[in-house]
Nucleic acid binder design. Structure first.
Lengths: 226, 226
DNA sequence: CCATTGTGATAGTATTACTATCTATTTAGA
DNA sequence: TCTAAATAGATAGTAATACTATCACAATGG
């Protein structure tokens, strides 16, 4: 399964200047930027530090990405694409719509505990980046233009799949898309809160995030519009 | 009511070096930073531009705030404190727990349409900042230390109040605090999506956000643990 | 009238976010 | 095999940013 994902997960939107998957330096840029952003946080991460870590010059990196914001969009896009493939796999060949929805919600809200099998890319580090930094990919003044360019297509495709699972169970649900995006985004935020602001969450929340979201989704799905 | 809020809303946590409410320049710093951050976005907002807008020197601003991140924490903290006071008012003297919860959810998830009556501070602009930038206040590597300092007290107090309203209706709810923080944070995220990534939401979501959250909360509250 | 407080102006440093240019090496194709 | 294109690395330079430090000045209050 991971081999298959390895073959399929890619970022199709042209957020890069030159495809980093296609060259050795490109792949090392991805590998090292994941490690460095995870370590330093996005604010303190710079192309200068990345270049130093790679033993190359800043100018080489600028040949792949316009700036660190585009690089972030690329990494987060990769992450959502990966989550989408995982979702497709985790819910394949399930006939019952409710079972499918439950599995889907669990698939999306589960933490990443495995380092993955993507060669150079550390999936756990990427997951931590997604939890802490993904909102910064779209919470900007450029969001409208970047959205037009298709920069957030990975996120949208994932949300759409979950929305469709909701609709399969409950075709008249009043706000299926909003519910889906709430689950996708909310599970990341809850993960962050559980880790860093535990006083905002309930005891044991961290390990129960998927259960909580399953409860929430089915409560919503089974409750008629008032 | 607004006069009372004017008297009560303040940021008690020492996120500032010198209380900006206490001086004329301080108040102008708040006023102009709200306008500028709203206009430029946090990334392009700088103390240099703020100083130019105020007709003063950068060094004067550094006497009030260590850096723009602390200023952001201050502004967002102010916003959450204001929402808390609004919540208290909107739910005062309601005996029935369910009615109180519904009013509370509506209070928290309602958009700000009024410019407010806070003299120098444009509440609508602050609301837009809160929608777009609030997550950047805590999604950083310094979050743990800043949380210990009490920088996010306003957010926590608001979530705690909503959690208590949930518990009043359903004392055995499995994850009342997580539900509360989901509503508080999620309503901002949904607002942003409706504005900038409408393909992620359902038709008419924008005007139905409070309804959707009321539905969600009551669905959750009325659904037993599985 | 003197000490404190608040403000403004200037100057300077290190870092960041780029842009431009030149050279060297590898690779693909004719 | 020769040539052209692609790739990478090195160097240099610019403008903006995020500060820090210092000095001078005015108002204010006891």
């Amino acid at each position: 399964m991971q081999r298959l994902m390895q073959m399929n997960v890619q970022v199709s939107e042209p957020v890069y200047l030159k495809d980093p998957q296609g060259t050795d330096l490109g792949r090392r840029i991805i590998e090292h930027s994941v490690v460095l952003i995870d370590e330093l946080g996005l604010e303190k991460f710079t192309f200068g530090k990345l270049a130093a870590s790679l033993g190359t010059a800043e100018s080489s990196i600028y040949r792949y990405f316009d700036n660190k914001h585009r690089l972030l969009i690329y990494l987060i896009g990769w992450y959502w694409s990966w989550r989408e493939y995982k979702l497709v796999f985790d819910t394949a060949n399930i006939g019952d719509a409710a079972t499918k929805l439950e599995r889907g919600v669990r698939s999306i809200t589960e933490p990443v505990t495995d380092k993955g099998n993507f060669g150079y890319l550390d999936l756990r580090a990427l997951y931590r980046i997604a939890v802490s930094e993904s909102s910064k990919a779209y919470m900007t003044k450029e969001v409208d233009e970047e959205h037009k360019e298709g920069c957030f297509g990975g996120f949208k495709r994932l949300c759409d799949r979950l929305r469709d699972m909701v609709l399969e169970v409950s075709p008249k649900h009043p706000y299926p898309a909003a519910l889906a995006s709430q689950v996708v985004d909310g599970s990341m935020v809850q993960r962050f809160f559980a880790e860093h602001l535990p006083s905002l969450t309930d005891k044991g929340t961290k390990s129960r995030i998927p259960d909580n979201f399953v409860h929430l989704v089915f409560a919503s799905v089974n409750t008629p519009k008032r």
